[in-house]
């Protein structure tokens, strides 16, 4: 009887506690650690390195948020999520935020109960082919077999692209990167399609990266960005301005190396960013020096980019559209004031 009683209590607790969450910032503070959903392993965006430490531009967003909330970029745990489970995991409150190369779309923003807070990488769907195939444009792909990793907007863009150009194809949707990769390498399909960033990541893992070509066409807009649960604007603000801080820091030329020297800057907007003037941290509900902590511990947007996916890395992605707006790119943040 005693057991039944405790079972009933447990049951009631399970059934009703999941119904209540509202203030994520408080929950995160109370837990003392940020739970950040990310990829199960995409080199350059979110993947554990040889020592098991998660690295990547998406992970850096998680680290920035942790630095803002706790003043410690390491006060976070990366929760690997599959493309299919990621939204459910976020909605159910298992993670506090999602930074997992996820495309910001209307239906996800409106219908799925998500709130996208910004864009940390402008991507687009592309095609990877073996160089030996002798194809130089995606318009030559009529009749090809295409390997797709499922659970993304990829299938839809692909279908639209081939339909628009009146071409035929055989779709081979595969559940994970690794399996799609194996099928592609074995020659089950001629083309591998996913976001271009993913293609570069994939190619960097191949034995002879030069034997593979990423075709120039981009067939979709894929703004990848972090998201939080809909209806918690306070928390959305924290994540949004953690990302914006990284972007503004690059714009102002503040890096993790020189941030300390900027503490005595004459420029008021730098002083505001680093928490030396104004009470912006307090408005956000975090420490006033959150900007300083992000830049010091994580670095600015450009540093994160170069460190994880830039030309010096195996990924070798040029800044391109992901340059600062001052350099003709799309990376832009509203003013910090």
């Amino acid at each position: 009887m005693k057991y039944i009683k405790s079972l009933m209590v447990a049951l009631t607790v399970v059934l009703f506690t999941s119904a209540s969450f509202a203030d994520t910032l408080n929950d995160v503070k109370a837990r003392g650690m940020l739970k950040c959903g990310s990829n199960t392993g995409l080199v350059g965006f979110a993947a554990p390195d040889d020592a098991g430490v998660w690295k990547g531009v998406d992970v850096d967003v998680c680290r920035a948020v942790a630095a803002a909330v706790f003043g410690d970029a390491n006060a976070m745990e990366v929760v690997p999520t599959t493309s299919k489970a990621r939204f459910t995991v976020l909605q159910s409150g298992e993670i506090d935020m999602l930074a997992r190369n996820t495309t910001w779309t209307f239906s996800r923003d409106v219908d799925l109960g998500l709130e996208f807070v910004g864009v940390n990488y402008y991507d687009g769907q592309g095609f990877l082919v073996p160089a030996s195939l002798g194809v130089s444009s995606a318009l030559d792909l009529d009749g090809a077999s295409v390997c797709i990793q499922v659970g993304t907007t990829t299938e839809l863009n692909l279908a639209d692209f081939f339909r628009m150009h009146k071409m035929e194809y055989e779709s081979i949707p595969v559940e994970t990167n690794d399996e799609a990769d194996a099928a592609f390498l074995a020659g089950r399909c001629d083309v591998y399609t996913t976001d271009q960033s993913g293609l570069y990541a994939q190619r960097s893992t191949y034995p002879n990266p030069d034997d593979w070509v990423v075709l120039p066409e981009i067939i979709s807009k894929e703004p990848l960005g972090p998201s939080v649960r809909h209806g918690d604007s306070k928390w959305a603000d924290v994540v949004r301005w953690s990302l914006n801080t990284m972007i503004i820091a690059e714009e102002m030329g503040i890096t993790s190396a020189n941030v300390d020297s900027h503490l005595s800057s004459d420029n008021p907007s730098i002083l505001r960013l680093l928490g030396k003037e104004g009470a912006y941290g307090a408005m956000l509900g975090v420490n006033n020096d959150f900007g300083y902590q992000i830049i010091k511990q994580v670095g600015n947007y450009g540093e994160s980019f170069e460190r994880n996916i830039g030309l010096s890395t195996p990924m070798a992605i040029a800044r391109g559209v992901n340059s600062m707006w001052t350099k003709g790119g799309l990376i832009y943040a509203p003013p910090f004031r």
Partner: peptide, 10 residues
């Protein structure tokens, strides 16, 4: 799988 991901109606 695919329909679920597109519609989100898990």
């Amino acid at each position: 799988g695919i329909s679920l991901n597109i519609t989100g109606q898990a």
